[in-house]
Write a protein that binds this DNA or RNA. Structure first.
Lengths: 207, 207
DNA sequence: GATTGTGAATAGATTCACAGCT
DNA sequence: AGCTGTGAATCTATTCACAATC
């Protein structure tokens, strides 16, 4: 928005971390904080905090530090989470239904507005405030509610076809939980989150 | 194990990806593959595959490629997933119970041998093959079953105390799903997986 | 002839250290 | 006096390109 698109995903993820820290500071009624103090409290690097923030503009006051509320607002705008993002979940298995009812979404900018599955036994069942709809209705619903983001929680072998269906439905971004290398459409950003890769990373260090 | 410990987490995660690809190739009865062909099939980089693999030894045959079954075995040993890893889940909320019954664990080297919560209403309930136990029993069970890895699925405000309890119980590694910056004990490897950070990364690119 | 393994080259990320503000 | 913002230095990762090998 305010800056170029070519920031590294690592730096971008750190911006999210800073935002989370700032929210916590605000709850603790801390109004001002220096990069040094923030690094100390949250086990981060002060130089990196300053570099990351300076990349997007001058957010601090020399000699003083950062205004917590102000910086938080700026970072929320930066990440685009100052407005709501309509989202859907595709795959009403255990993980999909768990996420559908995730209370953290209440305080986030992401609104889960649909939950889909292609198993007729699941279609029509209620999950919290949502009713499972058939995957074939994906296209209509994405258009109707203006869904931008899809969370993909289908089995590995169904991931690609569902990704393709989401692309066709006009979704903008996909968070994929299936352990596959998706063939990506350049118009639709995707991020894969694979539990076993995290566990294997930990396993490597077990000796 | 076979090599130094100072590999980057990125390269390590790519090794997991290669392993996943090799398993898929084996199912398709592909016995030999070149880095180029593998890169092409799975949308990876051939040079990087070779560099990553060569870092741990000479696994291929010049002019020919890699033996799928052999390379798979080597990578499994490398990651330490050729033996089973006893694991527990702490936090029997929606995410914890969904993971407890995750069918993917059946074919993995990770065995979920305990599920814990401190809510007395949850203690004693069954989740698949597991019965929820009270968190105060953590220490005993970790010792009894020799649990190495804990998956932490408690609310954010309870994450640090549960992490500390796991450290005290002698756990070796923790996969944390709570959105907090944990204060880490240097003896216990931890990896935090934060859903909102992934979603915010996607949100940034929505324009 | 084909493909690996690898040093050299490039690109990218992090840390240092201090000039420039408040 | 203290802290940010930043260029320069360092460290790390990726890509290139080719000699070594089958």
């Amino acid at each position: 928005m305010s800056h170029q698109d070519d920031i590294s995903p690592l730096a971008l993820n750190r911006i999210s971390v800073y935002l989370r820290c700032l929210r916590q500071l605000q709850e603790q009624e801390v109004h001002r904080i220096s990069s040094k103090e923030m690094a100390h409290r949250f086990h981060l690097s002060a130089a990196q905090i300053r570099k990351d923030l300076a990349y997007f503009g001058e957010f601090g006051i020399r000699g003083v530090g950062y205004d917590v509320a102000h910086l938080r607002e700026r970072l929320e705008k930066l990440l685009g989470v100052e407005r709501e993002h309509p989202a859907i979940i595709v795959g009403a298995g255990r993980v999909g239904t768990a996420l559908a009812q995730f209370p953290g979404f209440r305080t986030s900018s992401f609104r889960i507005l649909g939950l889909f599955d292609n198993d007729p036994r699941k279609v029509g069942t209620r999950q919290g405030e949502l009713t499972v709809r058939h995957s074939r209705e994906l296209g209509t619903v994405v258009a109707d509610v203006g869904a931008e983001i899809a969370i993909l929680t289908v089995p590995a072998e169904a991931a690609q076809e569902n990704y393709d269906a989401l692309v066709a439905a006009g979704i903008k971004a996909v968070l994929n939980f299936a352990p596959v290398q998706l063939e990506l459409d350049p118009r639709v950003r995707a991020k894969t989150v694979d539990l076993t890769i995290f566990l294997e990373e930990l396993a490597y260090f077990l000796r």
